[in-house]
Every structure is written in structure tokens, then in C-alpha cells.
Simulated assay, not measured.
Amino acid sequence: MDETEAWPEEAIKRLAKAVRDRRDELNVTQTEVSAKGGPSPATLSLIESAARSSFSRTTLRKLERGLGWAGGEAMRIVRGENASATGGDTPTPRRVPIETGRPDVHAVVETFAAWDAPPKDKLQVLQKLLEQAIKEMPNGS
């Protein structure tokens, strides 16, 4: 499945339920998800009401960011992968901590690896991160 084709109705409903469940779990509004880098409240409403037959990768990446999901998690939900251990058909998304003082390094690496970008773009991001880290190092370290 990709963004250019209509997704099956059950896939849209799976995503809608997972998003509603995650917002309930976090106890956040659509506006708060949007403020954390998620899609607009209007788009979140469309997702949660299963009102569209597909969403762009950009929208799904924003959704993952706003809900604290690992990269690629929204499409895994759409495809029905990563189903819960209870045998139900509702996937259990992997979580990325969204409000911690220190990021989960494994989640950051996993999200970066799942990022759908050309290798050159990934290298440029890594270069900028390294440059920033070097600037922040105390002298002599």
C-alpha cells in the first residue's frame, strides 16, 4: 500500500482507532498533537474519523512525530503489521518517549533508519548533528 492508492476500509479504521487510542493514552487533544509536530487538527480529525482513503507519507511522518511513535509505525498499522499479543487485529505501536530529558537512543536510531530520505540527505543531517555536538562539547573533551 502507498499514498497513491486507496487503502482498504479496515486499514483506515485500524489507523483511526490506533490514533484515537494513542491520544487517549497520552491524554492530549488534537491541537496538542499538532503542536508536537503532528498534522493539523483538521487532518487529525479526518484520520480519526476514517474519512479519507489514504494519507501522504509526510502526513504519516507528522502523525508519528506528534504521537511519539517510531518512524514507519503508521504504515505498519495500516498494513496490519505488529498486531497486539492478545490476538486482536489492533496493532500495538512501538513507542518513542516524547517528553523525557534524554532521548531513547535506540528509538532515535530506529526512526532515523526508517526515514524515507535519500542517503545524501541522511548524511547531511548526520553532518549537522556532529557539528552541533562538537560545538557543545566543553573545551578539552
Rank of each mutant, 00 (worst) to 15 (best):
A113K: 15
E5N: 13
K62M: 12
E99D: 15
L67G: 00
A16P: 08
P41Q: 15
A35Y: 07
L46N: 12
G80K: 02
A70V: 12
I134T: 15
P97W: 09
L123Q: 12
A42Q: 10
N139F: 04
K17D: 15
G68N: 03
R65E: 02
A42I: 07
V109C: 09
R65A: 13
L63K: 01
K128A: 13
G38Q: 09
W7K: 01
G71Q: 02
E131C: 06
K17E: 15
E10R: 13
M137K: 05
A117G: 07
I12L: 12
Q30R: 15
G140P: 06
G37H: 02
A85M: 07
R52F: 05
R22W: 09
L26F: 12
G72V: 00
M1A: 11
A6F: 04
G88D: 03
A83Q: 13
P103R: 04
A83M: 11
L63R: 00
G37K: 01
L123C: 08
T29Y: 11
F112Y: 14
G68W: 00
A18V: 11
Q127Y: 15
V125G: 10
E81W: 09
A11K: 03
E9Y: 14
L129H: 04
D104R: 02
D116P: 03
Q132A: 14
D116V: 07
E25G: 08
A16G: 10
E25H: 14
T100N: 13
W7Y: 08
T92F: 01
S84C: 11
L26S: 11
L123S: 09
V19Q: 01
A107P: 01
W115F: 09
S56N: 04
W7A: 02
R61T: 04
G37N: 06
K120R: 11
L123I: 13
A6V: 07
W69T: 03
A117D: 09
A113E: 05
D89C: 01
L123P: 01
E81H: 09
R23W: 15
R65V: 15
Q127V: 05
P103S: 07
N82M: 03
D89G: 03
R65C: 10
K13Q: 14
G80L: 06
